[in-house]
Amino acid sequence: MTKVEELAQGVLSGEIRSIARAITVIENNAPEAKKLVSSIYPHTGKAHIIGFTGAGGAGKSTLIEKIVREYRRNGKTVGVVAVDPTSPFTGGAFLGDRIRMQELSTDPGVFIRSMASRNYPGGIARATKDAVKVLDAAGKDIVIVETVGAGQSEVEIIKVAQTVVVVHAPGLGDEIQAIKAGIMEIADIFVVNKADRENANKTVMDIQAILQLNNKETAWKPPVLKTVALTGEGVPQLIEKIEEHRLLLEKGLKHKGSREKAEAELIEAIKEKVVSSVLEGLRKEGEFEQLVGEIVEREIDPASAAEKLLKKALKDAEA
């Protein structure tokens, strides 16, 4: 067996060290990463993947901890990928989501991995999607992804998760603006956490009001739930809703949903592949560097330069 095969084998048998190493290999985009993902891919598709997003301070990590506990009580195994931002200046990151879940870390039915965004946009890391596949292939029943939570448009999560939960809390300031600004469309379920605060009902009503603006006929109307993560209040109800959503996906939506997801993933993969192989060729020729110089000197604009390069690259490919 090659090393990659061995690693893949370890993942499939649910061996913790292998799962951890496999995620590192993917994160680092090591040479064997592609082979690894392709060898585990046939074994994925069994887990239900849930995304949690929403502004910082909403209590996502605490809520996730409670949800994981509830799933464990129901006999399910769980994987968690928690994403934190990478500093664009230093390239370093401080990964602190795990702290809310540390008591779960010694439960053999739970695997938690912290992940730096490494400047990938949209609230997750480039490797998040494949890390989820690793946990799926390793036999986790549920895989939870926690996004960066910087309050910006963290819409990438829909490419990864089947059920997206958007978490809010009363008193976070202009969080309702944030919902309007983009994450409204991605939510399958809304949660107003810290619902023991006095203005929680207002937050619920605000969200409902925005939802009513969207009067498209859909099979699934995103519910708005209340939770108190600190005490676990409302968590069973949330899980019930997630389960309902999963069943609906299974019945019919699933096909559509998974086709869309597959399409998006394929396009993404093509982009990545095309860019890296074209770039590689261009850099070898030296023309790339030359054009960069010309752009700097304002002799040519970037779009025209790209056209020029691509024409040549495609011709080369045909030849």
């Binding site: 370093g92 602190g96 702290i99 540390q102 870390s105 912290s114 730096a116």
Partner: peptide
């Protein structure tokens, strides 16, 4: 903070960790 500013990815798990939690975290986080 210093290690982060030096470009590393730093996992901090907070106070009062048991030896079991520390070892298991090191394992899962690779």
């Amino acid at each position: 903070r210093a290690l982060r500013d030096a470009g590393m990815e730093v996992i901090y798990t907070g106070l009062r960790q048991t030896p079991e939690q520390i070892a298991e975290t090191a394992l899962q986080e690779d």
